[in-house]
Design a protein around this nucleic acid. Structure first.
Lengths: 341, 341
DNA sequence: GTTTTTTTTGAAATCGATTGCTAGTTTCCA
DNA sequence: TGGAAACTAGCAATCGATTTCAAAAAAAAC
């Protein structure tokens, strides 16, 4: 194991000064061609790589993004991650990823840990606990200290920062409208994410579509819960007391639940029950039989947009840079779980 | 936006020297209690956090781990990631994650990008391309330069470093033996990962189990390919020409393919065909109908073990620290795709 | 051959923190 | 009151790089 080469070492071994070496390697016109090549060759020989820590200290930035994700096992977040990583790599940034596990405490401690020079800015999706408790001061503080934040998917209206969202309301509206178009009259709503901003927006889109079509809103059919288990319990009750012909599920897991439970109850899909669900990963929905019609969120695009917003802000010279919100469109992917027109 | 507090600022504002502030905040006995409290209170007021970059430079380490994963959308790797992140967090380390996308070039450039002081050590799973081309010099170079590497899952025998593996051979052997125990006679092997070290080991375990039970090896039943598409093509041919009663799939996607194609061919599962597959994520296999019997790899444990190996090495004072290999056991999870005894 | 100009190199400051050593002040005892 | 011991606080070096400015050397001009 050879020790890593530093400017100082090279300088000593070549009998020149540190600054000469630095300038030579940076192709400064101050240095003669002769010494430049001599130094460059020696540096290559020694496999010299400038130590970024020294550079970071000098430049007061690290070209590193802090990413806080509630849960990487959720394939939606995994997809967003790929988008972020791709853009970051292209622009020469690294990504430090932390999992909040939906915990407010972990979210705060992560923000704290990283906002000490380790990273230049954050990209994050708010933890469930923070949304539930309406606790957003930690974000404001970080922004006040001068570290920019970009929020995606689960955002907070009260916090002023860049944001990337899906058009949740419109997507839900369109999906519900599609169910209505293919003839569904009794459309249930399945949600295990009543706590989240996105869950609320999607539910509103569903309601609006019903209203627009003069369909009476039956609260028995609207299952808004905070957990998969609670949703399951409510669903059993729903199936005991009602016959339905459509389900709109607000999350991937909710749609899987809807599919399994309705198959168990003897429904034929899509003949007498159509299902549409929001999709995180596309794979899982496609694999099911019947495969699920989904509102597809373009995870990688969301991530890419977030990374671009952040890097743009980091690299802009201006201090007063207005906050932007990027909206990424969803796509209704028709598969086997819905009737065709 | 207030500028971040530095030692220098605080020193100036309190009319003391930088070193006094530093010592006071570090509770040095050199400083009187009086000044200590005065400085500490002011620092708290100003929300002072020591800038880690300065520290890193001084300490010549960053308490950051570089993680290189072939593909984060593969839920096995996502699970490993959670294990790494958890241990890292506990021990005060950050994780910079990069995706190699199975590309050798990206793998090399990532190693290069990060091994300049950004990270203290690597955890990685070798890209498919590197394994295919038998190109491992980049790992050796990095290790030679003094940056430790821990490999997990897809490892390279020729490279001396810490490793974390699953007992692939034994797991495959046991799974195949289980199929034999429940009465299977014609067991096909489905592999789309012929290129990978783990794919080879698993295939050997399968062969060994057949041999031990005096079952003639029929190469028509052994589908070793390098891609999902190739596997699918071969599988169609297999089903055209043979009747089988068992499938052992070497990867999660391969088992899903096995399940779908055999259902399509009219097999009743598990009555006349039993399937066992290696599982990355447990969720997807459980969701399928029928649910899949799997060889379950404990992803988080693998990640945790890798992080522990690396951190142990980083924090050991000794220079000659022997390389270790940790083996994590798998578990056969019996579900609906196999007959019961 | 001397002065001016140009070229080439190097010394020193800087980024933000730590730390060994030194200098200055106070206390205490003779 | 003088000197030693004890306590505080600050100077300066260090980590690895960049960069400004000054100095030295070489080339050009007179």
């Amino acid at each position: 194991m050879k020790a890593k080469a530093t400017l100082k070492q090279i300088a000593k071994e070549l009998n020149v000064s540190v600054s000469t070496v630095s300038k030579a390697l940076n192709d400064s016109p101050e240095i003669s061609e002769q010494t430049k090549t001599r130094i460059k060759e020696y540096a290559k020989l020694k496999n010299y790589k400038p130590n970024v820590i020294g550079l970071n200290l000098k430049n007061r930035k690290t070209k590193t993004i802090g990413l806080i994700i509630p849960n990487i096992l959720n394939s939606f977040f995994a997809k967003v991650f790929t988008g972020i990583e791709k853009v970051a790599e292209e622009k020469g940034y690294n990504v430090i990823t932390c999992i909040s596990n939906e915990s407010l405490k972990k979210e705060i401690s992560t923000l704290d840990m990283l906002s000490n020079g380790t990273i230049d800015g954050f990209i994050l999706s708010v933890s469930e606990e923070a949304q539930k408790l309406h606790e957003f001061n930690h974000f404001k503080e970080i922004i006040n200290e001068g570290t920019p934040i970009v929020m995606f998917d689960r955002i907070v209206d009260e916090v002023e920062c860049d944001k990337v969202v899906v058009d949740d309301f419109d997507s839900a509206f369109n999906a519900t409208q599609h169910l209505i178009n293919i003839g569904c009259k009794k459309i249930a709503l399945f949600s295990s994410i009543g706590n989240l901003s996105v869950g609320k927006l999607r539910a509103e889109g569903y309601l609006k579509a019903l209203q627009n079509n003069n369909i009476a809103i039956n609260t028995d059919l609207i299952l808004r819960t905070d957990s998969e288990d609670a949703l399951k319990a409510k669903a059993e009750i729903l199936f005991d007391n009602h016959t339905i012909d459509g389900i709109f599920a607000l999350e991937e897991d909710d749609s899987v639940l809807a599919l399994r439970i309705s198959l168990k109850r003897g429904y034929i899909i899509p003949e007498n029950l159509s299902i549409i669900g929001f999709a995180d990963g596309i794979l899982a929905s496609r694999r099911l039989s019947p495969s699920l019609t989904t509102v597809s969120q373009h995870g990688p695009e969301i991530g890419a947009a977030a990374a671009e917003l952040l890097i743009e802000r980091l690299e802009s010279k201006e201090n007063e840079y207005p906050y932007k919100t990027t909206v990424i469109k969803t796509e209704l992917r028709l598969r086997e779980s819905t009737k065709t027109l």
